[in-house]
Computed example of a mutant assay.
Amino acid sequence: MQRAIAPEISTWPDEDPQLLASSCDHCGATVFPVQPQCPRCSREAMTQIALPRTGTLITWTTQGFLPGAPYLGDETTDTFEPFGVGLVQLGDVIRVESRLTENDPAVLQFGIDVELTMIPLGHDENSDEVVTFAFRPIDPERS
Score class of each variant (00 low, 15 high):
Met1Val: 03
Met1Trp: 04
Met1Tyr: 03
Ile5His: 02
Ile5Arg: 02
Ala6Gly: 01
Pro7Leu: 12
Glu8Gln: 08
Asp14Glu: 15
Glu15Met: 04
Glu15Arg: 04
Pro17Asp: 05
Pro17Lys: 02
Gln18Trp: 07
Gln18Arg: 14
Leu19Thr: 15
Leu19Cys: 08
Ala21Val: 07
Ser22Gly: 05
Asp25Glu: 11
His26Gln: 13
Cys27Ala: 01
Ala29Asn: 11
Thr30His: 05
Phe32Asn: 02
Gln35His: 07
Pro36Glu: 02
Pro36Gln: 01
Gln37Glu: 11
Cys38Ala: 06
Pro39Gly: 09
Cys41Trp: 10
Arg43Phe: 04
Arg43Ser: 14
Arg43Asp: 07
Ile49Tyr: 00
Leu51Arg: 03
Pro52Leu: 11
Arg53Ser: 07
Gly55Pro: 04
Thr56Cys: 07
Thr56Ile: 11
Thr59Phe: 03
Trp60Tyr: 13
Thr61Leu: 11
Gly64Ser: 10
Phe65Lys: 08
Leu66Cys: 05
Gly68Cys: 06
Pro70Met: 13
Tyr71His: 12
Tyr71Ser: 08
Leu72Trp: 05
Leu72Ala: 14
Gly73Ile: 02
Asp74Gly: 06
Glu75Met: 09
Glu75Leu: 03
Thr76Met: 02
Asp78Ser: 11
Thr79Ile: 07
Phe80Met: 01
Phe80Leu: 03
Pro82Val: 02
Val85Met: 10
Val85Ser: 04
Gln89Trp: 03
Leu90Lys: 01
Gly91Ala: 02
Glu97Lys: 14
Gln109Pro: 00
Gln109Gly: 11
Phe110Glu: 09
Ile112Trp: 06
Ile112Thr: 07
Asp113Phe: 01
Leu116Ile: 03
Ile119Pro: 02
Pro120Asn: 09
Gly122Leu: 02
Asp124Gln: 05
Asp124Arg: 03
Asn126Ser: 14
Asp128Lys: 06
Asp128Cys: 07
Phe133Tyr: 15
Phe133Ser: 12
Ala134Ser: 12
Ala134Gly: 06
Arg136Ser: 15
Pro137Asn: 14
Ile138Phe: 00
Asp139Ser: 11
Glu141Phe: 11
Ser143Asp: 13
Ser143Trp: 10
